[in-house]
């Protein structure tokens, strides 16, 4: 493709200038520019949270967060990937926990340092009210924290931006686990599906899938995407 055929934009990946076709996602634009992803790419569909990216656009002071596989490049964009946010994930037995404020303070006491600055919410590519769910957890409202954080895919951008060094996605995950285990309990449709699996209802299909070659699998996958 030549520059005069397709509209091109200039982006800066880790400070290096590239001319890339407009309309590409950050991820595709980076690949176009010659980057090969060994980390920081997963489902490519906006579900897995592996491709957390921060960027600034031309003329703006704002540091913004996005998923590289979802965000379309803009002219003059400065891009850096944050493929991993260093954070300790605590080990707990969900069966033994009580769904209250104490459990959050026990495992993640740093939530008490929340400044309510809302930087996490501003960083979230999923448009989740991150600060609100951290605050709900702090006051022991497990249900609210679980519901508000439901769309979290754990990309980690909130955690790298938090001035109080909180890891919000861990809080949301704990809230959702507590909520589903101790407040709503297992739902009927899940129990039904587990029974079906145990009864071998899907065994035949799985066995069939195992015999397919790469092309046939890809065809199935893409048909499934269209069906959805």
């Amino acid at each position: 493709m030549m520059d005069d055929e397709v509209e091109m934009v200039t982006i800066y990946v880790m400070g290096k200038r590239h001319r890339v076709p407009a309309g590409l996602t950050i991820m595709k634009a980076m690949e176009y520019a010659g980057h090969q992803f060994r980390r920081g790419a997963g489902c490519r569909g906006g579900f897995c949270g592996a491709c957390a990216t921060i960027y600034r656009t031309k003329g703006s002071y704002k540091l913004q967060g996005a998923l590289a596989c979802q965000k379309i490049v803009e002219d003059g964009m400065y891009i850096a990937q944050i493929p991993f946010s260093p954070a300790e994930k605590k080990t707990y037995n969900i069966e033994e926990l009580r769904p209250d404020a104490g459990v959050f303070l026990e495992y993640y006491p740093e939530i008490a340092r929340c400044l309510s600055c809302n930087t996490c919410t501003k960083a979230c590519p999923q448009d989740i009210m991150v600060m609100d769910y951290v605050q709900a957890a702090l006051r022991g409202d497990v249900e609210e924290a679980a519901k508000l954080s439901f769309d979290c895919i754990g990309c980690g951008l909130c955690a790298v931006r938090c001035p109080a060094e909180i890891v919000p996605y861990n809080i949301g995950q704990l809230a959702r686990r507590l909520y589903s285990r101790h407040i709503v309990g297992p739902t009927e449709h899940v129990l039904k599906r587990v029974r079906e699996i145990e009864e071998g209802r899907f065994d035949e299909e799985i066995e069939e899938l195992k015999t397919l070659d790469r092309e046939a699998l890809q065809e199935r996958y893409e048909t499934r995407e269209r069906r959805l």
Binding site: A101, G102, V103, L105, E106, Y107, P109, E110, A112, R113, L138, R139
Partner: peptide, 26 residues
């Protein structure tokens, strides 16, 4: 040091204590 505080102790403390403590001392 938050890491040095006993989890059981943290569990029993009212939020107001932990919030103000960390606010003042970290």
């Amino acid at each position: 040091s938050l890491d040095a505080l006993e989890p059981e102790e943290l569990r029993g403390l009212p939020q107001i204590a932990i919030i103000s403590n960390l606010r003042k001392l970290t």
